[in-house]
């Protein structure tokens, strides 16, 4: 494990100043500590954000939706009965995310910004493309958990359970840096590594995610989250689906379908959602939308089964919204 210095500021401004100077943000540490221990990350300075006031907890302002502080532990969201009433999809997505111990310290911001779980990426001894090497080893290697769609030079998959769920709720994020604040769509935080961009997130140097916002409109939609794993707990998703829609007189409006575990980013295709507008979310409509979502999928040697799985999970998720 490489050595680093550690500071725990109380003020956000201080943390942002340190980040600007090249320090690395530490929240729950459940991902960063393993990255450092395996030599994949080599920070020299860590800024522990967990002492900062005001970035923890969630609140609702009538008409303005929900704001979730980035340092809120996942367990707090999962166990909040109030939030479960407003936004049940969040609890659904967190229920099978990692383990109770990780959810106790893992934060919302950390979950969204976690690095991918590709075993070539995580192995210090493999010089994969994402780490500056020349190729993706999964392409002709062991690929059962890799991407089937949307990959360019790197075939890792977006691992977060929370991200698809929040994207299906049209979430935005507040991004802070010493230069100020900006807002962006959560979906835009995730980028497929490509060309010169050898990373999974669109944050700029010195920025941190301060909060997630879910607009009021999303609270009126039904949502659901389904996740396929090899074992019944404590696995990253092979495939996951977050779906939401407003159901009026048996017809679906404002449909969102986001896949996890199949692409380098939470996978969403506008045409598929559009296709579902006004349908009764019957089997045919759901499967047709799934086909649009997975159009152009090019599975590797071992992961063709993900297409079958994704298709069925999309159908089930959407059907359950109709029901």
């Amino acid at each position: 494990m490489s050595l680093f210095s550690y500071t725990k500021p109380r003020a956000l401004s201080e943390a942002l100043r340190l980040l600007r100077g090249g320090a690395t943000a530490l929240a729950g540490g459940t991902d960063l500590v393993t990255l450092v221990r395996h030599g994949v990350a080599r920070p020299e300075r860590l800024v522990d954000l967990t002492g900062i006031e005001g970035l923890r907890g969630w609140s609702r302002e009538k008409g303005k939706g929900i704001r979730i502080g980035a340092l809120t532990p996942l367990a707090d969201l999962e166990t909040s009965a109030q939030l479960a009433k407003l936004l049940p999809i969040v609890r659904e997505s967190l229920r099978d995310a990692a383990t109770p111990q990780i959810r106790n310290v893992g934060t919302v911001g950390g979950n969204l910004l976690q690095r991918n779980r590709c075993w070539y990426f995580r192995d210090e001894g493999v010089p994969c493309w994402l780490k500056g090497g020349t190729r993706c080893f999964a392409v002709d290697g062991e690929s059962r958990y890799h991407a089937v769609v949307g990959a360019h030079e790197c075939w890792m998959v977006s691992p977060s359970d929370l991200a698809p769920a929040l994207i299906a709720c049209d979430a935005e994020i507040e991004v802070a840096s010493s230069l100020g604040r900006r807002r962006m769509k959560l979906a835009d935080l995730f980028v497929a590594p490509q060309g010169k961009r050898r990373r999974e997130h669109a944050l700029r140097e010195g920025e941190l995610v301060a909060a997630v916002r879910v607009p009021e409109g999303a609270l009126e939609r039904r949502g659901t989250y389904l996740k396929a794993m090899e074992r019944k707990a404590w696995s990253f998703a092979i495939v996951s689906v977050a779906a939401s829609a407003r159901i009026r007189e048996g017809r679906a409006r404002d449909v969102r379908v986001v896949l996890g575990g199949v692409a380098p980013v939470p996978w969403r295709v506008a045409a598929a959602e559009k296709q579902l507008e006004g349908t009764a979310l019957d089997d045919n409509a759901c499967l047709a939308a799934a086909d649009t979502l997975l159009d152009g999928a090019t599975p590797l040697r071992d992961n063709g089964y993900k297409v079958t799985l994704a298709r069925e999970l999309v159908r089930r998720a959407l059907r359950s919204l109709a029901g």
């Binding site: 550690y6 540490g29 500590v33 109770p100 310290v105």
Partner: peptide, 27 residues
């Protein structure tokens, strides 16, 4: 495992179970 996969290192921090292998002592 020393990487948060097994739970053998579980302790309580402020009453909540956490993996002590993923927790920095300074924190």
């Amino acid at each position: 495992c020393n990487e948060g996969d097994c739970g053998a290192c579980t302790v309580l921090v402020d009453g909540r179970p956490v993996y002590s292998c993923l927790t920095l002592a300074v924190a």
